[in-house]
């Protein structure tokens, strides 16, 4: 597979490490949210046949974490974003 890195352009997927669903970005707050919230966050996932947002890490590249939107049926990659930008825009903050 080829992932079109937002900074570096097309790069071979062999350079990346796959983590999983991009919802892993939405970590609850440990000081205010409880076990239930963390349990959902860590274990409950959708498993769509089709567009799927997922986290990839460019380990053999620039070490960027990316949010890759990929069609799980065709492997077509629809969108690639820097995870840091996505997280920052989503108000993840500090």
């Amino acid at each position: 597979m080829i992932i079109n890195h937002p900074i570096l352009g097309p790069r071979d997927a062999q350079e990346f490490v796959y983590l999983g669903d991009a919802s892993l970005m939405n970590r609850p707050d440990g000081m205010s949210d409880g076990i239930e919230a963390f349990h959902d966050y860590l274990y409950n996932r959708d498993n769509p046949a089709g567009a799927h947002r997922e986290l990839w890490y460019h380990e053999q590249g620039d070490r960027s974490w990316l949010v890759v939107t990929r069609n799980t049926v065709t492997h077509e990659i629809l969108k690639v974003e820097l995870a840091r930008d996505v997280a920052s825009k989503a108000g993840r903050g500090k």
């Binding site: 970005m25 986290l55 890490y57 380990e59 974490w65 840091r84 930008d85 997280a87 920052s88």
Partner: peptide, 19 residues
């Protein structure tokens, strides 16, 4: 060593991007 570094980058970029 490698997986911890990867994890720290995840925390830095994805969980708390403005740190």
């Amino acid at each position: 060593a490698v997986t911890v570094f990867r994890h720290l980058e995840f925390c830095r970029q994805v969980l708390w991007p403005d740190m």
